[in-house]
Amino acid sequence: MTRRFLLLLLLSVFFLPGCDRLGERPKMKIAYMNCNNERETYQRFAPISSYLSEKTGVEFETVVVDTHEFEERMKAGEFALVHTNSLLYIILKEAVGLKLLATEKRGAFGTHTAGALIARKGSGIEKIEDIKGKRLIFGPMMAPSGYLAQYDLMLAAGIDPERDLAYYAIPAGAFKHEKLIYAVYFGDFDVAAAPVLDLEEMTREGKIEADDFTILAQSATFPYCTFGAAADLDPALFDKIKKALLDLGPEDTAELDGERLKVFKTSWAEGFEDLLDSDYDGLREMARRANMPPYQSY
């Protein structure tokens, strides 16, 4: 009798904590901004969610969200964390009090990025004033380095994008940033609003050469993609997630669908840094000048 009791006790010691953990593990959602397409975005960022789950004990679900859906779904309290571009971060901070967690590092500017106006070399367009009456291709409207920065650059140069260009367009479908660089390269458009990071990556990959384009103007740098947390997220969990993100290194792996993946390699990130909210003030000024959300007035 005593032996049976002891055996039962021993088994309980081994198995019960596991059952409790599985049963109690809280579930939360992380919304990732849809970049090139939904599938690619999921494949890039799901390992980060998995890594955060391993580090925090919270089961994070990866959700890919289009830019225009964020505000409404955040207001509905659907997401604990969001990974968006920096413009969306400041919009969500105004709208739902999003808290800054960490800023992604990628490319030569590290935690920052910039937007440039480019023309094909030899096209005769040498400076920003030359783009009046020309065909321009922007990136997506909510892209700070593919739209806002260039819009602001044109306004600063006394060019009204709505009136002074022959016309402008925004490419449809996936891989918009690459498409607009190729659009200028192959002569479909005269000028493109290119994110500097894409120029850099395409140069590194050998898709373009540094001399293929003339950079007509380039914005000041501003923060790149950003992790934010819902205002009501438990402060202890906030700190845990922040630490996990800042600790993330090139050798860290996470499990996804039975496979262990290197988090940086799959997500294209090069690290996460601890920026201050005031680091986003330059971008806020840009949005104000361009009459863009969250400071848009009619």
């Binding site: 030569a108 850099e200 590194r204 540094a210």
Partner: peptide, 13 residues
């Protein structure tokens, strides 16, 4: 400077 930075990317290959 930005194009110089891109040229550095090329050389870094």
């Amino acid at each position: 400077p930005q194009q110089a930075l891109l040229k550095l990317e090329e050389l870094a290959r």
